[in-house]
Nucleic acid binder design. Sequence first.
DNA 1: CAGTGGTCTAGACCACGTG
DNA 2: ACGTGGTCTAGACCACTGC
Lengths: 259, 259
Amino acid sequence: METTSPPSFRPGSGSRRAARRSAVFAPLYRQIKDLLVESLRRGEWMPGAAIPSETELANRFQVSQGTVRKAIDELASENLLVRRQGKGTFVATHHEPKAQYRFLRLAPDRGEPVPAHSRFLQCGRERASADIATRLGLRAGAALIHVRRVLVFGELPRVLDDIWLPAAPFRNLSADRLAQYNGPLYGLFESEFGVRMIRAEERLRAVAATADDAAALQVEPGSPLLRVDRVSYTYGDRAIEFRRGHCVTDDFHYRNALI
Amino acid sequence: METTSPPSFRPGSGSRRAARRSAVFAPLYRQIKDLLVESLRRGEWMPGAAIPSETELANRFQVSQGTVRKAIDELASENLLVRRQGKGTFVATHHEPKAQYRFLRLAPDRGEPVPAHSRFLQCGRERASADIATRLGLRAGAALIHVRRVLVFGELPRVLDDIWLPAAPFRNLSADRLAQYNGPLYGLFESEFGVRMIRAEERLRAVAATADDAAALQVEPGSPLLRVDRVSYTYGDRAIEFRRGHCVTDDFHYRNALI
DNA sequence: CAGTGGTCTAGACCACGTG
DNA sequence: ACGTGGTCTAGACCACTGC
């Protein structure tokens, strides 16, 4: 039982007043939040697992439960944690079915959303072009893994994805591993490579299908495709993926909510 | 000085316990939130104006300041209110420059964002097709106003917008009024027609330019365009606009953050 | 200086899930 | 019955703004 408060557990330095006025000023709850993110990054709690209860964290950090709550609130609103009343707070995972649709924005114009599966065309090593290096925050020529796949909705091929990953963390990714895996790629990244994708930025535009696109997607060359360029990030704004998708949007659309 | 608590001011009915168990069960702070939204809808506080302070609202509703705070927190996160430390809480308005970019997602591929202005081509009355009626929650044949404009970035025409509005609230909208107005359309809707747009849902796809599109946007017929269908909503999920944009995305892109 | 929102605490009770 | 997160309160002090 902890009756003393080890100063090393306390965020900031010295008394609360001193901490507030120090160079690294931040509200207490935000310092707690940063500590929690750091624990997530280190893998102290794995995706899908419960983190300690609010009261336990409050004891650990020597702050009130309300302060921990506010830190967790922000992490939950950023989808890094998931609260479940009566059960606890859990590390978000890409294996929850509801998490998929946060990043899969393509949906059929009519009817229910159809489950999608991948048909992998390619998985090999490559050197980063200047363009891709910039997007991933690497230097040109850095080692990459390049995956190419078609996303098939039911029987309908609708997305041709080119995916570039930094070779280092994804060293063991192979065509075989992809072929035998069934589920969202980010789920594989998370459980197999310990790289958890938490957010992404996209740029969309309309382009004409190249001969390659057309063949893979069974459309006419020159027909309009939606091109989606995505950079995905993990903890600490570190880019972990550049993805370029070409989507057939004759009977599908990209949905977006503006709030 | 209020020493008694007038029950009419209190949300729910009867004692707190009774209120929590009643058919309209909702946490207190959410009932407060609904009351605040209702005041916004009624126009009790106009866009840009300050709402009463947290303590004043707490007194009015006979709840603690913390409960009011949580209600306001949610409204601020939905961009209906804007907190400003030391000054108060304000009703969000489309006239703030930073509000524009929440709904204007098209940006140049390189260089700084360029201010956009409208070149209006048309403003007239029309009957709702079955399709547009459905999107706006009207019956087919309902009276609409149809606006057509080109969005020009600097000198570059990049978006051809067709905008359909229910005729009733926008009765006095005219080509003249549009021509003399300078600023975002939602700002005009808000200050001239009392219709405040608070969120939208979009569907994006790639299409080939028609002859019409091509002429307005100075591109070749058949060239790929990004088509953006948007339904905009005001308080209470009431649809107030259907907008279809055709965007040239050769040197521009639609930006989107996935969080 | 007064008033506003921002942070933090402490404690109470409730609703939910599990045993 | 117990532990979790969810709600609500009350009060303290801080930081920012403007008079």
